[in-house]
Nucleic acid binder design. Structure first.
Lengths: 133, 133
DNA sequence: CTTGCCCCTCACGTCAACGTCAGGTTCTAG
DNA sequence: CTAGAACCTGACGTTGACGTGAGGGGCAAG
């Protein structure tokens, strides 16, 4: 398929797909006229790339990891890389969980009636807040 | 305390603290000479800001959330904002978890002896991989 | 051949969260 | 008073993952 179809089928922009090629993440074949042609496997590949981007990995890191994922490159270095990235993701999850719990605490306070003003009839301007330091 | 001390105590750069002020996240008092002076509470405030940055929130979003967190601003809008950001973080956690599981699968393959080449004496070039669709 | 859609390659623009350098000021120790 | 560390305000630089034209080419239909 050509680049436009891959874009619509994966939900990423044409520009992004060209960028992936620039980063050597997804190299398509070329027609005699120079147009990019992708095979069916490219769809899943793009989804994988998006997943890793969403996990906060950089193009460079994804480039390093892709051979491990699909071609099963298997060296001590590649395994170290995989576990290192796994650890990074774990740390991110931990941080996100902490932030979520913090928000949960705030939400709990704001929804408990003991909080002070879960009232709806907030016709009164603002109850003269002065203590602020 | 002055900005340098706050920086060392929180582990963020002086530039970052000035940036926080630019974003109205942390407005310090000023001495007659124009130097910033922070109170003790600023330390925890910076840690909170860092936590929210680490959770992927933007300065703007943090600016919106901070009044909810410390001054207990409590309107229907603020509660909606809190739960919306909580949901965003949850989605991020889900995505990260998926990516981690994906990496785990790859790691499992690369460490299982059935994978093909967990060997160390990789003098052989590459065992002629041809099945790839 | 022409229309028209999709495609191509530059190449500059963007946005966020700072880094960094320049040139000048405040504060503290002696 | 002097030295010097720490501070100040601009203001431009950086990085990553694209967005956004500009100007031109491929290709199937009529």
């Amino acid at each position: 398929m050509r680049i436009g179809e891959l874009a619509t089928r994966t939900g990423v922009s044409v520009r992004a797909l060209r960028y992936y090629e620039e980063q050597a993440l997804l190299i398509p074949a070329r027609s005699s006229g120079g147009q990019r042609h992708y095979d069916e496997g490219a769809v899943e590949r793009v989804h994988l790339i998006q997943m890793l981007y969403a996990a906060g990995l950089s193009s460079r890191t994804i480039l390093d990891l892709l051979p491990c994922v699909d071609a099963k490159v298997n060296t001590p270095e590649s395994r170290a890389m995989l576990t290192a990235e796994r650890a990074r993701i774990e740390r991110q999850i931990t941080q996100l969980t902490q932030a979520r719990d913090r928000l949960d605490a705030v939400i709990a306070l704001s929804e408990s009636p003991a909080s002070g003003c879960t009232r709806s009839d907030t016709t009164a301007p603002v109850p003269t807040v002065s203590a602020r330091g």
